[in-house]
Nucleic acid binder design. Structure first.
Length: 197
DNA sequence: CGGCTTTGACCTGCGC
DNA sequence: GCGCAGGTCAAAGCCG
């Protein structure tokens, strides 16, 4: 149940993979700038984005996108930001939130879990719709929002809410990678090929 | 046939 | 109290 309470995405290789595939190579330290772990302060989001909308695709600006793709719209967006924060605090009770921005042509990245789309919504001040997904595993209440960065559509902003109460199928792969490092690329390649379909 | 996506409607919460 | 915007639901359609 709480086997995955550190991170809803126990197989970070998939994300690293995305960074390797699309953008110029970067260190993992730099990659970590894109990770917003646990209780990300959404109030900073609106401050950042409203004061520097044109920052573009910097990692700092990622915060603006992560909180809400359409967050840079001033009073209205601040309003909604507060709404979400309140609702999250009430409903989620402080569940883990993880947001990251990835440069990818694919909106839906294969993070090893199976997601079912349950909603799509156009957001204010953003030309790109936001997609809502739930973990299709029975009993797992993790949700994920996916949207394209309003400043740079080549970036995908993914926000996870909650913690999976089950293991990802990809954990098997991950374990196998450790067990047999010689096969890591083969395994990743096969995983990626199935993900990109 | 089962699972997933799509899409419109509805609900909720906040600012004015 | 009203309007706005985000988030969720549920029915219908599609696909493997």
């Amino acid at each position: 149940m709480d086997c995955l309470d550190e991170d809803p995405n126990p197989n970070p290789n998939h994300f690293v993979e995305k960074y390797i595939v699309d953008p110029p190579p970067m260190d993992f330290d730099e990659l970590s700038n894109y990770l917003m772990l646990d209780e990300y302060d959404f109030s900073r989001d609106h401050q950042d984005s409203s004061s520097s909308q044109s920052v573009g695709s910097s990692s700092q600006n990622f915060a603006g996108g992560a909180g809400s793709g359409g967050s840079s719209g001033g009073a209205a967006s601040r309003n909604n930001m507060q709404v979400r924060r309140n609702r999250l605090n009430k409903v989620e009770g402080g569940n883990h939130r993880v947001a990251f921005r990835t440069k990818s042509e694919l909106e839906v990245m294969d993070d090893g879990f199976k997601w079912r789309k349950y909603g799509k919504k156009s957001v204010k001040n953003s030309p790109n719709p936001r997609n809502y997904y739930k973990c299709s595993n029975g009993g797992c209440n993790v949700k994920k929002r996916v949207e394209r960065d309003r400043d740079d559509a080549s970036y995908v902003i993914t926000t996870y809410e909650g913690v999976h109460n089950h293991e990802s199928p990809s954990v098997v792969y991950y374990n196998q990678m450790h067990a047999d490092p010689n096969n890591i690329w083969t395994l990743r390649a096969s995983s990626q090929s199935s993900a990109s379909s």
